Computed example of a mutant assay.
Amino acid sequence: MTVRVKICGLTRRQDVQAAIDCGAHAIGLVFYPPSPRSVSMEVARELGSMIPAFVTVTGLFVNPEREFVEDVLKTVPLDLLQFHGDESPDFCRSFGRRWIKAVRVREAGQIEQACADYHQASGLLVDAWDPNHYGGTGQSFNWSLIPEQRPLPLILAGGLSSANVARAIEQVRPWAVDVSGGVEECKGKKDATKLSQFFKEVHRVCKTD
Rank of each mutant, 00 (worst) to 15 (best):
residue 46 E to W: 03
residue 87 E to A: 09
residue 35 S to Y: 08
residue 135 G to K: 09
residue 166 A to K: 15
residue 8 C to Q: 05
residue 99 W to M: 01
residue 33 P to V: 05
residue 61 F to M: 00
residue 179 V to R: 07
residue 104 R to M: 00
residue 195 L to A: 08
residue 175 W to E: 05
residue 19 A to C: 13
residue 11 T to C: 14
residue 91 F to V: 06
residue 28 G to M: 01
residue 15 D to C: 12
residue 9 G to P: 06
residue 60 L to E: 04
residue 28 G to H: 02
residue 203 H to P: 01
residue 12 R to I: 05
residue 87 E to C: 03
residue 122 S to Q: 15
residue 165 V to S: 13
residue 21 D to N: 13
residue 11 T to D: 03
residue 53 A to F: 11
residue 22 C to D: 14
residue 143 W to F: 13
residue 166 A to L: 10
residue 51 I to A: 04
residue 93 R to N: 10
residue 87 E to L: 00
residue 39 V to T: 12
residue 71 D to I: 02
residue 127 D to H: 02
residue 26 A to Y: 05
residue 199 F to H: 14
residue 42 E to S: 11
residue 132 N to G: 15
residue 155 I to T: 00
residue 68 F to K: 12
residue 202 V to R: 09
residue 9 G to R: 00
residue 36 P to G: 07
residue 2 T to K: 12
residue 125 L to Q: 00
residue 206 C to Q: 10
residue 91 F to S: 00
residue 51 I to H: 03
residue 69 V to F: 06
residue 191 D to T: 14
residue 81 L to S: 05
residue 119 H to A: 14
residue 6 K to D: 04
residue 107 E to Q: 14
residue 103 V to M: 08
residue 180 S to K: 02
residue 201 E to G: 11
residue 11 T to K: 11
residue 121 A to C: 07
residue 18 A to I: 12
residue 100 I to Q: 02
residue 110 Q to F: 01
residue 153 P to Y: 07
residue 110 Q to V: 02
residue 52 P to Q: 14
residue 78 L to A: 04
residue 132 N to D: 13
residue 20 I to R: 06
residue 94 S to A: 10
residue 208 T to N: 04
residue 31 F to A: 03
residue 34 P to T: 00
residue 60 L to A: 08
residue 127 D to V: 06
residue 3 V to E: 06
residue 86 D to G: 03
residue 144 S to V: 05
residue 136 G to R: 03
